[in-house]
């Protein structure tokens, strides 16, 4: 669409600016402030320069948490994206099945995140949970409280349960936008099922898949509540992700300086990801 140049449009953006300044810019400045200062208490601060940043970047604790974050995001993307595509391809196209599927599938997305954690906690517990009991009955030794592998498996299955529907809904939206004529043409040409998928459905889903991929990546990268409820970061530190570590440091131990420095590094990573996301999205807008 042709847009006219009009700087008065700033007045329309003003309410949003004020709101976001209050809820984002000012708090962020506080973080920057803490990250370069040290304190002996009594609200007396002095300049600490980049000491906190060096501390954080040199600590194993930070890199291990970052590594766990990346591994978690990688695994859940590798499962959720193909699974989401598979389910979307098999969704009913019309009839009563459509709203039923959509509503049931969207259900996990609307559950508060700590309730998701609670649901999986009680579902997986060896003493009272259906999953825990079921696995025990099958002779599988499963205990997410003290076994690292089981804890990870539980978190991953929980995330797949929680968020695959997002991928499904996005892919479904892309699929229903394909005109019926495309399929008829493919049929006349005698295209195989795979060819229809590869040359008609996949290209049409490309954009929504990108959105799904990036949203899932970023949201899993800042995951906090669900692992906090289910494993509390344990056993040991095996499921302590960046967010969990950060909250522990800032609110639990009140180590303001390192916590603030870590926040900024964390935020910069996210900023880089957002920039990639934005570039991809807007270049899509122009070609579409």
């Amino acid at each position: 669409m042709n847009k006219t140049w009009n700087n008065k449009a700033w007045f329309m953006v003003l309410p949003v600016l004020v709101l976001v300044a209050f809820s984002a810019a000012i708090p962020l400045m506080t973080v920057v402030n803490y990250s370069v200062q040290d304190t002996f208490g009594n609200n007396q601060f002095f300049w600490a320069g980049t000491a906190w940043f060096e501390d954080v970047l040199e600590s194993d604790r930070f890199w291990e948490a970052l590594g766990r974050n990346l591994m978690f995001s990688g695994i859940i993307l590798a499962i959720e994206i193909p699974l989401g595509i598979l389910i979307a391809l098999n969704m009913p196209k019309k009839g009563i099945g459509v709203p039923v599927c959509l509503v049931l599938m969207a259900l996990p997305l609307l559950i508060p995140w700590n309730v998701v954690g609670t649901i999986w906690q009680v579902f997986g517990r060896v003493d009272i949970g259906l999953l825990g009991r079921g696995l025990a009955a099958l002779g599988i030794n499963y205990n997410y409280v003290n076994n690292v592998f089981d804890a990870w498996a539980t978190l991953i299955v929980m995330d797949v349960w929680h968020w695959t529907s997002l991928v499904v809904l996005l892919c479904y939206a892309g699929l229903v936008s394909i005109p019926e004529a495309y399929y008829q043409a493919a049929k006349i040409d005698g295209a195989s099922r795979w060819a229809v998928f590869r040359y008609i459905q996949l290209p049409k889903m490309k954009r929504v898949l990108l959105i799904a991929f990036l949203l899932r990546f970023m949201d899993s990268f800042m995951i906090y509540t669900e692992p906090f409820v289910v494993t509390g970061g344990g056993p040991g530190n095996s499921t302590t992700f960046l967010s969990i570590d950060l909250v522990k440091m800032a609110i639990g131990q009140f180590d303001l300086g390192p916590a603030a420095a870590m926040s900024i590094i964390y935020f910069l990573i996210i900023l880089l990801l957002s920039w990639i996301f934005y570039t991809v999205m807007t270049s899509g807008d122009e070609t579409a």
């Binding site: 000012i26 935020f267 957002s274």
Partner: peptide, 28 residues
């Protein structure tokens, strides 16, 4: 509807807030 000074930067800046980890903001 409009193009205005800094519109793209502003849009991007808004977007970064959606991506910001809540954990970063809890204390401030």
């Amino acid at each position: 509807r409009y193009r205005f000074l800094g519109d793209k930067h502003l849009f991007f800046w808004l977007l970064t807030n959606r991506m910001a980890p809540p954990a970063v903001f809890a204390l401030p």
